[in-house]
């Protein structure tokens, strides 16, 4: 049934640190790599080497420029994938029951065997987290690497989503938001995070940590103090070296 579960036992999801992300797209590549070979149909590319390549991606990185009232503009990289919403509108619109939210961990999944490719769920999602695969005609979305996180054939460090495992700056964190002691809950509490598009009332699980305030430019006389020579006469080893070189 595409009714949403009243309560999920856990709330698995991601924390994405916008302060740390450098927009390298490593997570995009890792996601495409893992998910094209595992859960469901491969993520196809159409006209990959031609003039108008398009392809299916479960994770895309936007870059924004934010201009504060005073000071320099900031560039912020913004990775975006399914937020595994608690009140997922994509699930309830699905006519076939292919889209569902799991009771055990809150992951929102598509059963591709049942999906007719009507595209309605992609329309219902405010975040653009679902893409129809052009080759297979079924809906693709982030699975939170459901085939990694419980996979006992993988070493324990690899039992996290591919994007989290690969991020070279550690900007992505995976965990259970229903547990107040989990790494993700602590991060959210410490840094304060906001739901994306709260007015859409989807109750997203994934959270974004806001960029930290930037260092302020110091005034020029402060710089001068910093640039003053620390010693007029060399002392110690350097003084000996100076003298020794002079003597040569």
């Amino acid at each position: 049934m595409t009714d949403l579960p009243k309560l999920t036992q856990r709330k698995l999801g991601l924390v994405i640190d916008l302060d740390t992300c450098v927009g390298c797209h490593a997570c995009v590549t890792a996601c495409k790599g893992w998910n094209t070979e595992n859960y469901g149909a491969p993520l196809s590319d159409i006209d990959a080497y031609g003039a108008n390549p398009v392809g299916t991606f479960l994770n895309r990185i936007h870059s924004y420029e934010v201009q504060p009232e005073q000071g320099c503009a900031q560039t912020i990289h913004f990775p975006k994938s399914c937020l595994h919403c608690d009140d997922a509108p994509c699930v309830t619109v699905c006519p076939t029951g292919a889209s569902y939210k799991r009771v055990e961990d809150g992951i929102v999944l598509v059963n591709e065997e049942h999906c007719i490719g009507c595209g309605l769920c992609a329309w219902a999602c405010p975040y653009g987290a679902r893409e129809m695969d052009a080759a297979e005609g079924v809906m693709k979305k982030c699975t939170l690497c459901v085939d990694r996180i419980y996979n006992e054939n993988l070493p324990e460090v690899d039992r996290v989503p591919a994007c989290v495992r690969t991020c070279p700056t550690g900007a992505r964190h995976f965990g259970d938001f229903s547990d107040p002691q989990s790494n993700v809950s602590k991060l959210v509490k410490e840094r304060g995070s906001l739901d994306l598009m709260p007015e859409q009332a989807t109750k997203p699980i994934n959270q974004y940590l806001p960029p930290r305030p930037k260092d302020k430019m110091v005034s020029s006389d402060q710089i001068e103090t910093l640039l003053k020579p620390v010693a007029k006469e060399p002392k110690g080893f350097l003084s000996w070296l100076d003298k020794a070189l002079d003597a040569l």
Partner: peptide, 10 residues
């Protein structure tokens, strides 16, 4: 299969 989810889907 589109006939199955009348409870939630228009």
């Amino acid at each position: 299969r589109a006939f199955t989810q009348w409870r939630s889907s228009w």
